[in-house]
Simulated assay, not measured.
Amino acid sequence: MPAATRKTIAIVDDDRNLRESLQDLLETEGFESYLYASAEEFLAQFGSQPVDCILADVRMTGMSGIDMLRILRAKPDCPPVLIMTSYADTRMEDRALSGGAMAFLAKPLASRDLIACVRKAVT
């Protein structure tokens, strides 16, 4: 995909290894990505770099991905948000989806499912 038409994904997770692994996966699928170690870091830079989709963990040091989602959804220019977690349960899934998440993904992430969700989010 030419760089000018590549979609950009923000990856927000406090696990550096996972962030970098997701970046590698997304780049092999033709996406660009920006990495953020916390919800606070992402929110502080929101709007400075255009993103087409946000992939965020629920449990992070500091603000949770669900709390970040609530803040983002109040903004008129919020891109689609995909929430991921290792601690999936129906209550958390309900909170994420009712809060405006486009998808709720359980870790470990299945690469095929993740890419399908990202593609759906950016089209």
Rank of each mutant, 00 (worst) to 15 (best):
M1A: 11
P2Q: 07
T5F: 13
T8G: 00
A10I: 09
I11T: 04
D13W: 07
D13G: 04
D13Y: 10
L18R: 05
S21C: 05
S21L: 13
L22R: 08
L22E: 12
L22D: 09
E27V: 09
E27R: 13
T28G: 02
E29A: 12
E32S: 10
S33Q: 01
S33E: 01
Y34P: 00
Y36Q: 07
A39K: 08
E40Q: 14
E41P: 04
F46Y: 15
G47V: 04
S48D: 14
P50D: 11
V51K: 01
D52A: 02
I54C: 03
V58K: 00
V58W: 03
M60L: 12
G62P: 09
G65Y: 02
I66N: 01
D67Y: 01
L69P: 06
R70Y: 08
R70D: 14
L72F: 04
P76W: 04
P79T: 04
V81W: 05
L82T: 08
I83Y: 03
T85W: 04
S86C: 10
Y87F: 15
D89E: 14
R91K: 15
D94T: 14
A96W: 04
G99F: 03
M102T: 11
L105S: 05
A106V: 10
K107Y: 10
P108Y: 09
P108E: 13
A110P: 03
I115W: 03
R119E: 15
R119V: 04
K120S: 12
A121T: 07
A121W: 08
T123C: 05
